[in-house]
Simulated scan of single mutants.
Amino acid sequence: MRLTLLILLTLGVAAALGLGATWSTVERGLPVGGLVIGPWRADPGVGGLGANPYQRAALARRGEAPLAYGDGLAFVAATDQEGRPLSLACDYTLTGDMPAARLWTLAAFLPDGRRMANPLGRFAATSAEAVRMADRPASVILSREARAGDWLPLSGEGPFVLRLNLYETAVGTPLARSKPTLFTIARGACR
C-alpha cells in the first residue's frame, strides 16, 4: 500500500511539474532563439512549418495568425532603449529608418494582447500615412496628449507593448544579409 501511494505521489508531482513548465513556456515563450534588434524581438519561424509546439500553442491560446516568411515579420517591444518597461504614464518618441518593406504598421497593445481603450479610435500608425521629411528618419510620438506629426494616442494605466509589423520584407529570412535598424524607443516625460 505504501509503495502504491509513493508511486501515485511521484506521478502527481511529475505531472504537476510537467504541466507547470509547459504552461510557463506557452505563456512566456522560450528564452532562446528569434531575432533581436534593440528592444524589438521577433521569431521569423513562427509562421512556418518550423514553429515548435510551444509557439503553436501560444498562438492558438492568443487566437493569433502569425505572418509567414513571404508575408512579413512581426516585432514586439516591451521595453525602451534603456531596458525600462513601457508605461502608459510616459511619452515615447520612436525614430529610425525602416528596412525595405512594402508596408509597416505600428500599434500599442496591453500586455495580454488586447487593444487599449482609445476614445479617438486611432489604434495604429502606418507607413502609408507617415509624414516623412526629406533626408530625415521616420518619427512617431506616443503620448496621452495630441502632438504634431505622426502621433499615436495612449490611454489607461500600467505597462503596454508595441507591435511593429513589416510586410513583404526580407528581414528575418535567409536572404537578409545583415541586421537592419528599427525604430529606437526613447522615453520622454512621465506623469
Rank of each mutant, 00 (worst) to 15 (best):
T4M: 11
L5R: 13
L5W: 12
G12F: 05
A14N: 06
G18T: 13
G20K: 02
A21M: 12
W23Q: 13
E27Y: 09
V32L: 15
V32E: 14
G33S: 05
G34H: 02
L35Y: 05
I37G: 06
I37P: 07
P39S: 04
P39G: 09
W40E: 08
R41A: 11
A42C: 06
D43P: 06
G48R: 08
N52R: 10
P53I: 09
Y54A: 15
Q55N: 08
R56D: 06
A57S: 08
A60V: 07
R62M: 12
R62N: 10
G63H: 08
G63F: 12
G63K: 09
E64Y: 11
P66M: 02
Y69R: 14
G70V: 11
V76Y: 08
T79C: 07
T79R: 15
T79W: 05
D80W: 03
E82P: 07
G83D: 06
G83E: 04
R84H: 12
R84T: 10
R84A: 15
A89D: 13
C90G: 05
D91F: 00
T93G: 08
L94D: 01
L94N: 00
D97A: 10
M98G: 00
R102A: 13
R102C: 00
L103Y: 09
W104A: 15
L106A: 03
L106V: 01
L106Q: 06
F109W: 03
P111G: 03
R114W: 03
A117F: 10
N118E: 14
A124Y: 09
A128H: 07
A128P: 01
A130V: 12
R132N: 06
D135F: 13
R136D: 09
P137Q: 08
A138S: 14
V140P: 00
L142N: 00
L142W: 01
L142V: 00
S143W: 01
S143F: 04
E145V: 11
R147P: 01
R147T: 00
A148W: 05
G149C: 01
W151R: 00
L152C: 05
L152A: 05
L154Y: 05
G156T: 03
G156S: 06
G156Q: 04
R163E: 13
N165M: 06
L166D: 02
L166G: 05
L166Q: 02
Y167A: 11
E168V: 15
T169Q: 10
V171P: 10
G172E: 01
T173H: 10
L175G: 13
R177T: 14
K179H: 13
F183T: 03
T184Y: 00
T184K: 04
A186E: 15
R191D: 09
